[in-house]
Design a protein around this nucleic acid. Structure first.
Lengths: 151, 151
DNA sequence: TGTGGGGCTTCCCATCATGGGAAGGTCAAG
DNA sequence: CTTGACCTTCCCATGATGGGAAGCCCCACA
């Protein structure tokens, strides 16, 4: 019993991770190479599906693939300290909060500008005036530490 | 007077847009080709700098390059209806709000999980338990309409 | 047993906005 | 004239994802 395995398409359907991404996760080392049939088809068992769902859920929470690799390692380490997991989660929360604050700032500014624009057929527009004002604070564009699907 | 022009590095410093990005904006058609010196150096005048600052400010508000192209066109169109500008701004706000809500959902879930994890040296961890639960709602990963720096 | 259609394989390309860096030409100050 | 800072173009990488082509495989049905 339980030698039941499924092909990659079925694994994708059952895990919510696309076949493309399953292959990519394997290629980049997030997942170990799948077992193959004689003809080269990948096959996945229940444990593999469980792992795939874990990955999927972690992606849904915005974890980067790198963070997921750490989470998977901790998941498989029966001697893990839960503090390690918690630290990763709290980092992720901090990152999410930082990004939310950034987007919130943009949204508030834009809402204020949009509210002040009467939005009719006349050309006067406080939104364009603001953009053209050119008093942009020269904040350097930082590289974000990878993470969210950002879809 | 006012035939003063600067090179791309100086334009970058004065506008807050990197030289790399100025070239890229030109290449992709967001900006018209810069005038060149005999030896091929790009040169920028006050009007160009004004445009660059406009672009920079719009990027800071999360507009996609595509949206900025529309905003620039409206900016230069003295017969524009302000409603057109307002519509673009409101689309952007809606997009920002949607993404904020998404991140907020992740952050809340993760905070709840992190709070329930005692974070000590023992291996028991509700965070991993949740990830492993595999009850992930199979929400399809949509492609996001381009926009934010997302840094 | 032949065949058709759907699933699998690998490989390449695109996204979006950005930076890094190499190889080589230009310019201005000393 | 040299030196060093700047400019040019070109290629590559990022992160996670999808699209699509070319070709092989497998099963069900006639």
């Amino acid at each position: 019993m339980s030698a039941e395995t499924v092909t990659i398409g079925e694994a994708a359907r059952r895990s919510g991770v696309s076949a493309k991404m399953i292959r990519w996760y394997e290629e980049t080392g997030l997942l170990p190479p799948a077992t193959r049939s004689e003809s080269g088809y990948r096959h996945y068992g229940e444990a593999d599906l469980h792992t795939l769902r874990f990955v999927r859920r972690a992606r849904d929470l915005g974890f980067s693939v790198e963070a997921i690799a750490e989470l998977l390692a901790l998941w498989h380490d029966r001697a893990r300290p839960s503090a390690s997991v918690k630290a990763i989660a709290e980092d992720q929360v901090a990152d999410l909060r930082r990004r939310i604050a950034e987007l919130e700032g943009m949204a508030r500014t834009l809402e204020r500008l949009a509210d002040s624009c009467c939005g009719d057929s006349r050309p006067d527009c406080p939104i364009l005036d603001d953009l053209a004002a050119g008093d942009a604070a020269p904040s350097p564009r930082r590289r974000r530490r990878p993470g969210l699907p950002t879809r």
